[in-house]
Amino acid sequence: MSMYTISPAPHIKSKDSTNRIMWFVVAAILPTAIAGVWIFGPHAAWLILASVAAAVLTEAALGRLMKKPVTVTDGSAVITGLLLACNLPAGAPVWIAVLGSFFAIAIVKCAFGGLGKNIFNPALAGRAFLMLSWPAHMTTWQNPRFWPDVVSSATPLAKNAVEIMGPGSKPSLWDMFIGNRGGCIGEVCVIAILVGAGFLLYKGYIKWYTPIVYILTVGILSRLAGGSFIFSILAGGLMFGAFFMATDMVTTPLTPGGQALFGLGCGIITFAIRKWGGYPEGVSYSILIMNAATPMIDRLTKRRVFGKKKR
């Protein structure tokens, strides 16, 4: 009827759409994934491809089945697939990646209502599922392909699990920084992680509160416990988890204060698992546990409304 569109204000919107953010996050994870492939060889690439493909196909199929708008193009399934693959040891069989992605998307994401509704980070829950179901495959680490012997080794964390977090004799801190060590595909090359994270921070898609608080908490606690600050923050999946998974928007608190608290909780739990737990690494479980605490944190960190007295 009317010639002109009527809609509520505001009439202009910022450029950042959900899709744009998601694809930028994909771009930010890519350096890490590529570094993983460079370090561990072509099998890692197959794992990444299989994981992403399985995630996307699962999401598309379930969208069809549940008669919901298919949201594959928003890139969130691609992120889940990529993150999951980065959390796998480079030598894992391809079917592990496929099953993990399927579990992550179908059960952790879609069963809870799809994008924006999931309680747990799908990639991490997928990894937890794989870890519980096929522990042998998930803890057989591969050495970087430049190393002379192809004998599988443990992650640096597991190596000196006895005197946890003491300065590792091998590999050197520099090796750990550039990724010359055993571990998951995505967690080894810290420099690539920092490049991607720096990009996201610069773009404003992730905020520094969670990752920085998380990393500092682990580092300081380890130092207090007699370990090395730098070793503890470079080791394991801490960098990767802090920048790419503890910052997942859906499963973390809304307010800056809540996000910092989330990081603190993750740090304490990670340290506790590393120090006293049965697993060598605690990043993924600490983030999952804090995911569950997110609604409580949200309630706890409600901000004072402008013009109201502090409650």
Binding site: I107, A111, F129, L132, S133, W134
Partner: peptide
């Protein structure tokens, strides 16, 4: 099938949920 998780506690919760 060897999905060890299914005979652990999470498997029970998931199955029951579904």
């Amino acid at each position: 099938l060897g999905v060890l998780m299914m005979i652990m506690a999470p498997g029970a919760l998931l199955t029951l949920g579904f």
